[in-house]
């Protein structure tokens, strides 16, 4: 019997989200290590067009169900519907993005399907016939390598893929669509969706800035955020940003938060000061063209992606750099 890998599709009713194409890249890699047929499972208000597009583009089977209220993520509807669909169309590996919806539903799905669960997967490899999945722990300074040796269609491994771990691939195969449209009965009453509220970071000046200087917990004290702002002020078309904890402390506004749940930025220059480089922060700066990291810890994950790494205490280095900068600007002084 052929084994299956099921991709749980993320879309907004109009478009397939890039996260789904990252999942596709990951499952192609997985299927090379462990031969299995990839199929997509999607739910939404009206899935017909997107299902067709997916199947045509990828030459994979798409199992789709139309459910009222399923164009936005709803924990109970999604877990319930996917449980039913996956019971009918079982897979050994069930993959979703480590997004705010994947994170919400995959652990519950793993229990409903009597499977195992590994979240935030960054890669997979095979050794002695066993598949291993690596994921970051301790803020990305350590990797944990896990396996689910008994994974099978009746006890699937449900996993979430860390955003950015795989480059999205959206093939263009132009195949004849292979779609199963099915109905799922999905009545729920315990959880009622009301509305979507805008992000407090909406309209952030970070999106337009060409240079962003951000401060993280390494600034240690509220007063030190002034150093971040002063450094930003040296550059034209610049803005001061922050990691999430700094906004949580109230030391900066939420409109200054950079990252997955803040603003996604794409400056020419990003200077990360006292920021460790958690995946949720890095998601916000993937499109930054040049990254400078100032951090006392040479092992901080931010050092892995920075173009220039400066291992220094920011409270000493920033004033020194500003002085050097001023001197060079006005050599006559």
């Amino acid at each position: 019997m052929t084994e299956h890998i099921a991709i749980l599709v993320e879309h907004d009713g109009k478009k397939i989200k890039p996260a789904t194409w990252e999942l596709f890249a990951f499952t192609e890699h997985l299927a090379k290590l462990h031969p299995a047929a990839i199929h997509f499972i999607m739910i939404g208000e009206a899935t017909r067009n997107l299902a067709q597009q997916l199947s045509t583009q990828t030459q994979c089977q798409v199992i789709a169900a139309d459910i009222k209220g399923a164009d936005t993520y709803h924990g109970q509807i999604y877990t319930d519907a996917f449980t039913r669909l996956l019971s009918r169309y079982p897979a050994t590996y069930i993959v979703a993005s480590h997004s705010t919806s994947g994170m919400d539903m995959i652990p519950a799905l793993s229990i409903a399907l009597n499977g195992t669960c590994i979240t935030g997967v960054e890669n997979t490899d095979k050794e002695d016939q066993t598949l291993y999945f690596t994921r970051a722990v301790s803020g990305g300074k350590i990797l944990a390598r896990l396996c689910a040796p008994l994974a099978s269609a009746s006890a699937p491994l449900c996993l979430t893929l860390s955003p950015g771990a795989f480059k999205p691939i959206a093939p263009d195969k132009n195949a004849a669509p292979d779609i199963i449209h099915t109905a799922v009965e999905c009545r729920q009453t315990a959880m009622i969706y009301k509305e979507r509220l805008a992000s407090p970071s909406l309209g952030s000046n970070l999106t337009k800035a060409e240079v962003i200087v951000s401060g993280g917990r390494g600034i240690q004290e509220e007063e030190n955020y002034a150093l971040i702002e002063a450094l930003a002020d040296l550059f034209p078309r610049s803005a001061a940003g922050a990691s999430r904890p700094i906004c949580d402390y109230g030391w900066a506004e939420y409109s200054q938060q950079v990252g997955a749940t803040g603003t996604i930025v794409s400056p020419k220059l990003y200077i990360a000061c006292g920021i460790s480089g958690a995946t949720q922060h890095l998601e916000g700066i993937r499109d930054a063209r040049f990254i400078v990291a100032i951090n006392t810890d040479s092992n901080a994950p931010i050092m892995q992606i920075a173009d220039v790494c400066i291992v220094e205490d920011l409270t000493e280095f920033i004033p020194l750099f500003m002085e050097t900068f001023q001197k060079r600007k006005r050599p006559a002084d």
């Binding site: 009301k194 509220l197 749940t261």
Partner: peptide, 9 residues
Amino acid sequence: IEGGARDVF
């Protein structure tokens, strides 16, 4: 959710 928007339930 992503981007800091909030879904109310």
